[in-house]
């Protein structure tokens, strides 16, 4: 049975990655924060007393389910918005911000930084865009397997699929990412070099 301190340590360790992972999936920082907060609360309330070793898998599962709930709500909301907007005029004030614009503005903030940092920032922007373009299952498998450092069995349990599927998703994700990055003019060697520098 885990203590409050152990849960705190675990959440502190994963919260940033969870946030970024959610941003890649939902492409909205505010929604991502809400989703991560919900997932943290659910983990603490319902599974807080579980063994600490179960936390990564449980948290990922909760996070994925919370994202799915968000998409379901979005789907219903979009349906109503479409229906209502067909009766009224378009509401330009209610337009959602494009996350890519945010990403660009973040880049502009760093224009005074040295060239190397700027180059790394650009590489990162390309990677993030590529991650957002990945099919959701591939992205989930990639993030859990490589970023969360979960093994194949844990990833399979969190995703609710077989270990073979996890391996397939991971392999496809890496190939898709490599292809997208190459299309953006970033070679594998350059990528590995950037990764090593950081």
């Amino acid at each position: 049975m885990a203590t409050t301190q152990e849960l705190s340590d675990f959440l502190a360790q994963v919260e940033r990655r969870a946030f970024k992972q959610t941003v890649y999936a939902v492409r909205d920082e505010h929604a991502a924060l809400d989703i991560v907060q919900d997932a943290m609360l659910k983990l603490a309330e319902k599974y807080g007393t579980h063994d600490m070793g179960e936390y990564p898998m449980l948290f990922q599962r909760i996070l994925q389910n919370t994202m799915k709930d968000y998409w379901r709500r979005q789907k219903v909301r979009n349906l109503w918005t479409t229906l209502l907007s067909s009766f009224g005029g378009g509401d330009e004030d209610g337009e959602e911000r494009d996350p890519l614009e945010t990403l660009e503005s973040d880049d502009h903030d760093n224009r005074d930084e040295p060239d190397a940092q700027l180059e790394r920032k650009q590489t990162l922007a390309i990677i993030e865009t590529a991650l957002k373009k990945l099919p959701s299952r591939q992205r989930e498998a990639f993030v859990m397997r490589y970023w969360e450092d979960m093994d194949v069995a844990e990833t399979a349990a969190a995703m609710g699929c077989s270990e073979g599927s996890v391996k397939t998703h991971c392999s496809r994700a890496v190939h898709t990412l490599s292809a997208i990055l190459e299309q953006s003019g970033l070679s594998k060697q350059g990528l590995i070099k950037s990764g090593a520098e950081s």
Partner: peptide, 15 residues
């Protein structure tokens, strides 16, 4: 494949 994945993750961690 793993090298590529690790390089990507390394950059993401850095961020």
């Amino acid at each position: 494949e793993q090298d590529t994945a690790k390089a990507i993750i390394s950059l993401l961690d850095d961020e």
